[in-house]
Amino acid sequence: MKYTDLQIDGLREMINIGGGNAATSISKMVNEKIDMKVPEVAILSYQELYQKVMADDDEVYGVISKIVGEYQGAILFVVTDKAVNQLADLILKGTQVSWDVKLSAVSELSNIIANSFLNAIGKLLDVQLISSLPQIKNDFFGALISSAYLAFDQYDEQVMVIRNEFTYAEKKLDASLFLIPEKGVLDSLIKSLGI
């Protein structure tokens, strides 16, 4: 897997546009300012991914939405228990609810994030991209992330990690948004960007 610095910068800018749109959508929904870190676009081994992002044996919730349109793949929103509580508090304004209701709120938020993200990228590339209804799963981070890449025929030892992190009130949300393209889609995206 080899890409030039210019190609990686182009992908990062595209993800920055998508993630910024997603952050704006969340901000409007919860009526609070949500910020986004500069997106990460890197080629990492799974071991590096587990060292840099999250340990493979951390238990998390993954909300996965398949991408429907000219480019295939998935959006994976990974959240810890703490982030589920943070997001549910933001969405439900502190209303006491069951864990299932919190997960449902996070799943709906993930749907809005995925479609906002894809809408912005679709406009940039002049294609229509939407996401399927999200599915939420509780598992170890390593199992979630590796099965998501494998589902899209990515069997390499290294993966292109494309992700956004969000913050609010200067607190980091233990949540990451991953774009997992089907094999060959990255090359098509780079070509569409003209780099």
Rank of each mutant, 00 (worst) to 15 (best):
D56Y: 11
R12Y: 11
P181R: 03
I43Y: 10
D126V: 12
V161H: 07
K171W: 02
Q72S: 05
L150C: 06
L125V: 10
A143H: 09
D57N: 14
N164G: 08
L90K: 08
T4K: 05
R12W: 04
G10R: 14
E182T: 04
K172S: 10
S146L: 13
I64R: 12
L118G: 12
F166C: 13
E70S: 06
A175G: 11
Y61M: 13
L193D: 01
W99K: 15
L90P: 08
L49T: 15
G194H: 12
A175I: 03
Q158K: 14
S104C: 05
M160T: 13
N16D: 09
V38S: 04
S131A: 15
Q72H: 05
D126F: 07
S131E: 06
L177D: 00
W99S: 14
L87P: 10
F178Q: 01
A23F: 03
I15R: 02
A74Y: 02
E59S: 04
S146Y: 09
G19A: 13
M14G: 09
K2I: 15
N138S: 08
G19Q: 04
T167Q: 11
N138M: 08
F140T: 00
I145N: 11
I17A: 09
I113P: 08
Y71D: 00
Y61N: 12
M14A: 13
K93H: 09
L179K: 00
L109A: 04
E157C: 08
G20M: 01
E170W: 03
L44N: 02
P134C: 03
N115L: 02
S147G: 04
F141V: 02
V78E: 08
P39L: 04
L193E: 00
L186F: 03
L193F: 01
S107E: 06
